[in-house]
C-alpha cells in the first residue's frame, strides 16, 4: 500500500534534503526519516516527498539472478518437451 518508488540520489543539499531522479524527473525529498546517511548514486524508496529506506542493491541483484535461473530452467524444460 502506499505508492513508494525507487529513485536515485543525484545531489545532497544538506543533512535533511536530497535530490532524487526517477528516469529523468527530479524532485527534492526529505531525509528526515533516514536513520543512515545516504550517498550520491544510492537508490532510495520515496513516498510523498520523503526517503524511507535505502534499496538493498545486493538483494535486488540476487533476486534478478534467481529469476534468470528460473527462465533458463523453463526454457530447458520446454526444449525437452518440444524435442528441440
Amino acid at each position: 500500500m502506499c505508492l513508494s518508488i525507487p529513485s536515485k540520489i543525484t545531489h545532497i543539499e544538506s543533512a535533511t534534503i536530497a535530490t532524487v531522479d526517477t528516469m529523468g524527473v527530479q524532485r527534492q525529498v526529505s531525509l528526515d526519516l533516514m536513520a543512515e546517511p545516504v550517498s550520491i548514486g544510492d537508490y532510495v524508496l520515496i513516498h510523498i516527498g520523503f526517503a524511507m529506506t535505502k534499496m538493498d542493491e545486493i538483494a535486488a541483484l540476487e533476486s534478478l539472478e534467481l529469476y534468470q535461473e528460473m527462465i533458463d530452467l523453463m526454457d530447458a524444460e520446454s526444449s525437452q518437451t518440444l524435442g528441440v
Binding site: 525507487p6 528516469m23 535486488a60 533476486s63 530452467l73
Partner: peptide, 24 residues
C-alpha cells in the same frame, strides 16, 4: 555481480519471461 541500474528496479521485476516462468 553487475551494477544495478534504476530501470532494473522497474523492468527487472516486470520481465515477461520471469512472469511466465513463475506462472508455470
Amino acid at each position: 555481480m553487475r551494477q544495478l541500474k534504476l530501470q532494473d528496479l522497474y523492468q527487472g521485476f516486470r520481465n515477461p519471461q520471469t512472469i511466465q516462468a513463475l506462472a508455470l
